[in-house]
Amino acid sequence: MSAGITSNEAHSSTYRAAEMARTIGLYILLIVASLVVLFPILFSLSLAVQGDTLAPQLVPDFSKLDWSVFSQAFNQEPNLGRWIINSFVVSLAVTLGQLITSSLAAYALATLDFPGKSIFFVIFLATLMIPWEATVIPNYLTIARDLHWKDSYQGLIVPFLGSGFGIFLLRQYFMTIPKDLYEAAVIDGCGRTRYLWSILIPLSRPALGTLAVYAFLNTYNQYYWPLLITDSPEWRTTQVGITAFRQTESAVFNLQMAGTLIVMVPTLLLLIIGQRQLVRGLTSGALKG
């Protein structure tokens, strides 16, 4: 119908329009998905700032938001700060412990060749198959009755210093690092332990970061064990504390939600800071170039 040039132009502008529509569609999808995923957090924030009411709305009246509720929560529950400190001490100790025990074990499984390796592999695999609940009664009796570790940091920390998940995660990562590197290092006279600390560990930062963030979050967010092993209010961790707080303030929705949000802040911040660790590419081309 028309000349070739105009049809080409029409073609490319249709293409550009389609591309544009695609991008806008993607953004809409992403935003809708985000709102759905964030709904519970937005909900709690909305209820927290509405003041003390028994009939809260989903969307607050923006002209009279009450932000004082967050400091009010600390006054209402003097132990709130202590709970946060407890959770931090326990989570940091467990994270460090898991990083050490897991990277050592994963190193042996991934890099060294030794007799009975598959047996040890199955032993570590078995820890993933034994649910924590299948061990909780004797563990409770050991810690609370025999060691008298109720209401103590060691009671909250020590049982969690090993991680089957961590071992497999790190082993998996260590195996992606070329064997040539190990062989080259050994030929150059590098000892086994030195290879782990000065080559494997630095190369495995993404995997270690993933494990660290994961271990910290998991420990901070523990509920069952601290519920069993803490009696006095000042030894509670945040999670046990916040559910107790909910019961004492059962009809005060804004305080409940404010307390919950305060308890969530440290891990949400950590997530934002540690995000890069989690999504960073999992392989680094060490032998290239």
Partner: peptide
Amino acid sequence: AISVASASVI
């Protein structure tokens, strides 16, 4: 990042 306990309260 949100614990099951906090999520349950919400």
